[in-house]
Design a protein around this nucleic acid. Structure first.
Length: 444
RNA sequence: CGGGGCGUAGCGCAGCCUGGUAGCGCAUCUGCUUUGGGAGCAGAGGGUCGCAAGUUCGAAUCUUGCCGCCCCGACCA
């Protein structure tokens, strides 16, 4: 992409309304535009990152055996009357009336609908297990939206739903998502820590929030520091195998959010040097809820013994749009965003320091073409802005690598490559820089 | 929903108390000079002062109502 053709409305000044760093940077980098409280347009730069995050989430769901579908944003109220949640949900649910005076709602979640889909096609234990998911916009009419996309009213969410014959099987489905989430967040450049969450009326130990640690996190969390650096199981995990040991290795260590924190247990279970209290952002939540929806909605299957029983379900959410904010909170500096390569809006930025200079233009052009050909998704700054402005913009939007080409360096046969994350710069000939860049694998 | 605050040029703000010509910085446009970390000079364009009613000879400024947005709290992916 050439910057002269792209749509990148960067702001030099910080908008007054933005309180936290990710919100400020997303506005300044021209990634989002607020349309109403908690409702945003995704401008091209932000949209690119959003799509990349979405795709990684999708790939890891697929790898774990989940099957993608797409349910609508609008749902009939009757479905929610069946589960009893139409009345219970309260004002967070956006209710809409159509021209025939039928009650609709903009979905805040999809348990009812997925259960209705399941019940109309699946009758036998032979249809199980199944895990279905979709990535769709949701709306929750939060009393007070804030922090940009971190707590918007409209948000993009991946939600999966598992259907199993019994609790033991449901636990295996739960474990698959547990592991898939660890891999997903790792690929996004995040260290996510699973923390025991409130299971509500169901009870048991099958609910976890996935928290990433960031100074500007919204809630206080407490955990064993070994969890933070434990690393993800890896993409070669056998999802058909026994995942329990992988899950146990993590759930056996203390980790709790403010609401679930037990100070005395923390002290007794975790040696002092490993007691970590930090701030965190919830980016995922997994949940086993048994027959909470299948029973009232009549999602039954016939068991081998010939009897019908409600299926055991779980749901598993990832806040896809929130993840942009979360990743920025975890990866930024004074100058702007620092995207992990896996989600960066562009792979590399090429800065033409002097458009109009024949040698510089030619070098930029050949670099651009070579990088396009290598699939590196370069952004070429071919505008007439001054060098200082170009550096600042490239730093702000957080492209992982900057290839800086100007007449001064070219005179000595050199270009400069800068790594955004560390600020390291190297000088070398254009040829060697390009052969190195086009040779290496896309990082994660 | 309780408490607080803000709506004036695309963005950031002053002006409002004490009513009378709508201003500053950045951005934008034109010209010249500049060009390796957000340039300089000269000039230009751009405003229903959130909306509505009221007071007044006269309202950005005073009064009332409404709308929108932000912050703190209770709630959430």
């Amino acid at each position: 992409m050439r910057l002269s053709r792209f749509f990148l409305p960067v702001l030099k000044e910080t908008p007054a309304d933005a309180q936290i760093v990710s919100h400020r940077l997303m506005l300044r980098a021209g990634m989002i535009r607020q349309e109403a409280a908690g409702i945003y347009s995704w401008l091209p730069l932000g949209f690119r990152v959003l799509k990349k995050i979405e795709q990684i989430v999708r790939e890891e769901q697929d790898r774990a055996g989940a099957v993608e579908l797409l349910m609508p944003t609008l749902q009939p109220a009757d479905l929610w009357r069946e589960s009893g949640r139409y009345e219970d949900y309260g004002k967070e649910m956006l209710r809409i009336v159509d021209r025939h005076e039928r009650d609709l709602l903009y979905g805040p979640t999809n348990e009812e609908m997925i259960t209705a889909i399941f019940r109309s096609y699946c009758r036998s234990y032979k249809d199980l297990p199944k895990t279905l998911y979709h990535i769709q916009w949701k709306f929750r009419d939060e009393i007070r939206p804030r922090f940009g996309v971190m707590r918007g009213r409209e948000f993009l969410m991946k939600d999966s739903y598992s259907f199993d014959l019994d609790e033991a099987s449901a636990r295996r489905a739960y474990n698959r998502m547990f592991v898939a989430y660890l891999n997903t967040f790792a690929r996004l450049g995040l260290k996510a820590v699973p923390m025991r969450a409130d299971t509500g009326p169901i009870g048991g130990d099958l609910s976890h929030e996935f928290i990433i640690l960031a100074e500007t996190g919204e809630s206080e969390v407490f955990c064993d520091s070994r969890l933070v650096d434990m690393g993800a199981p890896g993409l070669d995990v056998d999802f058909d195998g026994d995942l329990q040991p992988l899950v146990d290795a993590r759930t056996s260590l203390y980790a709790a959010t403010e609401e679930m924190h037990e100070a005395d247990r923390f002290v007794s279970e975790v040696p002092e040097e490993r007691r970590l209290s930090a701030r965190g952002i919830e980016v995922g939540h997994i949940f086993y809820f048994g027959t909470k929806y299948s029973a009232p909605l009549g999602a039954n299957v016939t068991h081998p013994d010939g009897k019908d029983r409600p299926v055991h379900m779980g749901s598993y959410g990832v806040g896809v749009s929130r993840l942009l904010g979360a990743i920025i909170e975890a990866h930024h500096d004074e100058a702007g965003c620092i995207w992990p390569e896996s989600v960066a809006p562009f792979g590399i930025g090429i800065i033409n320091l002097k458009p109009g200079d024949a040698d510089t233009d030619a070098a930029c052009q050949s670099a651009y073409e070579a990088l396009v050909k290598a699939g590196k998704d370069p952004l070429l700054d071919d505008t007439n802005e001054r060098p200082g402005g170009k550096f600042a913009t490239m730093d702000l939007i957080g492209v992982p690598w900057q290839l800086i080409i100007g007449p001064r360096g070219l005179k000595e046969g050199k270009v400069e490559i800068k790594r955004r994350a560390t600020g390291e710069r190297f000088e070398a000939s254009l040829e060697s820089v390009l052969s190195q860049l086009t040779a290496e694998q896309t990082g994660q």
